[in-house]
Amino acid sequence: MANPLATITRQTGLGMITIRADLDRAGDAIAEGVGLAIPDTAGMTGDGTRILAWMSPDELMLMLPAAETPGAMTALEQALTGEHGLIVDMSDARAVFDVTGPDAADVISKLVPVDAAAMPTGHLRRSRAAQTAIAVWRHGDGFRLFGFRSTADYLELILQNAAIAGSQLAPR
């Protein structure tokens, strides 16, 4: 049996913090609080362990090792003292998957209405995978995506189906 197009792996142990604030006013404080630069529109910044992603004009998502989440929450609360902002721990609300392998873009292209092959590194695309909301970006030898926790089994199933051996999108 030939190999699947990509390996689908569920990732756990990832902390996620939603930050809502006026980035023009509070950007510097947030950047200092999390130790990363504020990303450009639809962009991401990172240092190897943490990623700060642009989600919306007034929303960022900090991804980091789960153990660092409480500390980062505190740091962010402090950074936004006196500023109108909202910090929420969303670590448990998400299901995260890695789609890795040479044909990972094919798997994404079957489910997400985006040009996966042309997606640049450092760009986070919020969209949908089949019938559920996701965010996806280039990660390692493929892509990482997350969706709602409740849809984890659905996401895993459609990703596995899309990766079925022999179903590459290249013309035959």
Partner: peptide, 11 residues
């Protein structure tokens, strides 16, 4: 000045 967050799945 209001922010909202849907935290349904966090809990």
């Amino acid at each position: 000045q209001v922010y909202t967050a849907n935290v349904t799945e966090q809990y």
